[in-house]
Simulated assay, not measured.
Amino acid sequence: MGTPEFAIPSLEVLLKNGYEICAVVTAPDEPKGRGYKLSPPPVKVFALQNNLKVLQPQNLKDPNFINEIKKISPDLIVVVAFRILPKEVFSIPPLGTINVHASLLPKYRGAAPINWAIINGEKETGVTTFFIDEKVDAGNIILQKKIEIGQDETAGELHDKLAKLGAEALLETVKIIQTGKVQTVKQDESLATPAPKIKKEMCQINWTEMKAEHVHNFVRGLSPNPGAFTFLNGKILKIYRTKLVEKTSEAADLKPGQIIVDGDSIFAVCSDLKLVQILEIQIEGKKKLKSEEFLRGYKLKTGDNFEVIEINELRKILKRE
């Protein structure tokens, strides 16, 4: 059971190692693009390419769906980046239902563990396999694999590494379950931290409150999607990549949110009067560009301001997108 690209390596590793996939459960097709044409989720595309049975329930508590799972009678259910399963589903298989989660639980329980780990400046993260129970991401841990987070690594880059690491952890976990000698560890609830779904309105950079290191982590934690943003002359400006640099004497004369242009480089002043260098940006309605490319078509000068929009007005703007 899974929906996005993150789940594909896990499904693929089970296929390659000869495990019988009774069915693949994924989200319904969704309308996308200007024509709102129905688009299948990535897991469905992969499953059909490999001639696997696909189920796409709208409601996981639908009796017809539950009966279909009972009819299929799986020995084990594997969940990777999917919705919250009701007990009527996860209790069906005799070997249990396991989840591959992209964090070192109990840290970062929730929908966006990769993003929040980077936003919060973590130096390492990993994947956890655990048995699903009624509380979200709180089941007993089977195994964990760790990985370092690079200082400039983005959520997109870390996502791809963790997808592969998750597949490795899943294969190892399934083999352990096959032996019938699974030893689990209960999660320490005192260490639990949330990783809620990220909404667009949460992605605005607040230059007057965020220090340079926080801005840098915020940008890479939201890159490439949904993307950290600010406003320039009333237009949304997404920032995809930054670099921390040393504070300069010039920055001391400027206020948070103001811009320094030095040759083909763009810097922004943060709340601690330290700078982040802006490397990749995208102004509303245009394509993503490196800063030097952006400066050739958009005349910025030192002292210009990145704007912070008040939350109620911001919601109105984002609703129009």
Rank of each mutant, 00 (worst) to 15 (best):
M1L: 11
M1K: 01
P4I: 05
P4T: 06
I8T: 05
L11W: 00
L15N: 02
T26D: 03
A27Y: 02
G35S: 15
G35R: 15
G35L: 14
Y36F: 14
K37G: 09
S39A: 12
P41T: 11
K53P: 04
Q58V: 14
K61Q: 14
I69P: 00
K71P: 00
I77R: 01
V78H: 01
V79Y: 00
V80Q: 05
E88N: 06
S91K: 09
I92P: 05
L95A: 05
N99R: 05
L105K: 01
A111C: 07
N115R: 01
G121E: 13
E122W: 13
K123G: 14
K123C: 08
T129G: 14
T129C: 13
A138M: 12
G139R: 07
I142Y: 08
I147V: 15
I149G: 02
I149N: 04
A155G: 09
E157F: 08
H159V: 03
G166E: 02
G166I: 02
A169W: 00
L171M: 10
E172N: 07
I176Q: 00
T179V: 08
K181Q: 13
Q183V: 12
Q183R: 12
V185H: 09
E189K: 13
E189S: 12
A192V: 10
T193W: 02
T193S: 12
P194W: 01
A195N: 05
A195E: 07
P196Y: 13
P196E: 15
K197E: 15
K200V: 10
E201A: 12
W207R: 04
E209D: 11
N217E: 05
F218E: 07
V219N: 03
R220M: 13
G221K: 06
N225P: 07
G227D: 08
T230S: 14
N233S: 14
I236F: 02
K238M: 06
K243F: 02
L244S: 06
T248K: 04
E250C: 05
A251P: 04
K255C: 12
G257A: 10
G257F: 00
D262S: 14
G263Q: 05
D264E: 11
I266S: 01
I266H: 03
I266L: 09
V269A: 06
V269E: 03
V269G: 08
C270V: 08
D272K: 10
L273V: 11
L273R: 15
I278G: 06
I281E: 09
I283R: 15
L289M: 15
L289N: 13
K290T: 13
F294N: 04
Y298S: 09
K299A: 09
L300F: 15
T302C: 05
G303F: 12
D304Y: 11
N305S: 15
N305P: 00
V308M: 09
I311A: 06
L314E: 07
I317E: 00
L318V: 07
R320I: 11
